[in-house]
Write a protein that binds this DNA or RNA. Structure first.
Lengths: 335, 335
DNA sequence: CTGAAAGCGCTAACAT
DNA sequence: ATGTTAGCGCTTTCAG
């Protein structure tokens, strides 16, 4: 394997100069730099990340924690993050946490403590106190993406405001019987997002002078299938039917849409449906939604962690943008 | 930071013994081992992956190449791989290749050559010759998952047989006008799977004594939306309508299903639909499909690469299982 | 701006 | 079974 000495010899300089020329740290004459680059290129030399990391303490590698890789939202965020990191020469090390509780522990106890990563991005994960302790004990920049986290720098989506925006859109259209598909309490241990979205929903109703009806809430599991079942229950109940549904995710909204169609409801005349996320199928289903730009979130988290690394400080916390996208599934109630 | 010497001192042994005790390589008395483990635990010591890698040449890290992270199939395979790797103490380094051609080059030229990974898993990627050259030049075990690759050890899905199986199922039900939704030629550069599935489809027709009609093929892009559009064209054409559609992926099959419903076709009386993959929504849509068990594929690739690493040999090539899952979207034609 | 040399924290011969 | 020690391949003072 060709090493730094080979390059140094060929370029007629010392290994220190090769290192400086290739890494861009420290000053090297333009001439020496050119010779080093020529030598490296012609020898096909690539710096050993392992040796470089040991000597410098920098790994050029970011750990990304997600609950599940195979869910659309997380894989979309992840793709944004990975794309941004690779562009800056960083590797992405993936840890999927929600699949196995035992392994989850070992990620915090072992994997992240092996000095392989320079920083950590935690995507939409409600971390336990001791997990946050472990994370901060790493002495590395850590950024949380999603909910606010009082103990970590976070890029926060204001889920209450997101839900209010969606609900206000329905209210403005004239709906008064608006149902909400959220998550059951079992979700909340890991993940407070559903609760915050429900709060926003209820705030908007209350602000409009409407009562919050328990019968107009259905828990689901953030999948299309779950949304379908929840909507089926909402539309098949004995009480007065809702004229609109606000689902806490686009996948559940799509499920609701499919259920409504199957039950013969016209969209949006009989039923309006609004989701949250900005799912790739939103256009296809003409779904009105509050887009939270997940790929961009992933990129932004990467940018933030890289900036923190460069400037030797904690990542900048911040608010994530969101936007109401009005498409065909929402309109005034028919009556 | 606590290092190996701290542990050695506390356990009253040398660093070599600590290394042996913790890694399980070489013999250590039960007594010494216990003392080392106690010392390591009470000091909170974790071996530096970086130092260990430099000294041993083993990185405990596998690079996984996927075309797109955010597509259901790839993220599902990836989740299987990552889960299996983490269970064995390995990190997963993710490279998403199809998003940016320039970066794709740098993955082969730089990222993979930094000695950070012990092996590479290439998921459903049609690699160029020079990319394979670079991969083999790494001197690491490499395994390709998906198509057969004459130059790499591969875990192969027999896509021709998969398509034949699906088509034969429709033929056995009595269908004679069977359409196929595959991919346009622009896909084939990266990815020969659609072509092989089309071949299997045509083989089955021919073996049954049926002609292959050009009008019964529609190209799409492997998305739900693409399947929807393709099916819309197939069902709205001027010629005689197909009584069945075989789609080269479940996502396209689901799109076809939605299109058929929208056009008022009864499933399966007016139209049978069969897909390929084993998509998580298959149960929900009652989709008949040829399941290829993607998560299991991911796990299997991980197992294969770890075995190769352990036994200092190339990964074992093999065939991937697939299975016809008959659900509600396929049945005899109504006539 | 450049070079010499001392590590970075561990592993693996080699000895014992 | 255990200890001693020479690296692994770079980066980074420290001198010049």
């Amino acid at each position: 394997m060709v090493g730094i000495d080979d390059v140094a010899r060929r370029a007629g300089v010392s290994t220190a100069t090769v290192s400086r020329a290739l890494s861009g740290r420290g000053h090297v004459s333009a001439d020496a730099k050119a010779r080093v680059e020529e030598a490296a290129a012609s020898l096909g030399y690539v710096v050993s990340a392992v040796a470089s990391s040991l000597a410098s303490g920098r790994a050029r590698n970011i750990g990304v924690l997600v609950p599940y890789v195979q869910r659309w939202f997380f894989s979309t965020v992840l793709s944004g993050t990975a794309a941004e990191l690779v562009r800056h020469g960083y590797d992405t090390t993936l840890y999927s946490l929600a699949e196995d509780a035992g392994l989850r522990r070992s990620v915090f106890d072992t994997f992240l403590r092996r000095r392989r990563v320079d920083g950590v991005i935690a995507v939409s994960i409600e971390l336990a106190d001791d997990e946050i302790d472990r994370l901060t004990a790493l002495g590395l920049p850590v950024i949380a993406l999603g909910g606010p986290d009082p103990r970590l720098s976070a890029l926060t989506l204001d889920d209450v405001a997101v839900a209010r925006l969606a609900t206000e859109h329905l209210l403005a259209l004239g709906h008064t019987r608006i149902a909400h598909i959220g998550a059951g309490s079992e979700f909340d241990r890991d993940f407070h997002i559903p609760t915050r979205r429900r709060q926003g929903f209820e705030q908007a109703l209350t602000a409009a002078g409407l009562d919050v009806h328990r019968a107009l809430f259905e828990p689901a599991d953030f999948t299309i299938e779950g949304g379908f079942r929840a909507a089926t229950r909402l539309l098949g109940g004995e009480g007065e039917e809702p004229t609109a549904i606000f689902a806490a995710s686009d996948e559940m909204a799509i499920g609701a849409l499919l259920a409504a169609r199957e039950l013969g409801r016209r969209i949006p005349a009989d039923l309006s449906v609004v989701g949250v996320d900005g799912h790739e199928l939103g256009g296809f289903f003409q779904l009105t939604t509050v887009d939270q730009f997940p790929a961009r979130q992933g990129r932004r988290a990467a940018t933030a962690i890289l900036a923190a690394l460069e400037e030797h400080r904690s990542p900048e916390p911040g608010a994530l943008p969101f936007e109401l996208v009005i498409r065909g599934t929402s309109g005034p109630p028919a009556r």
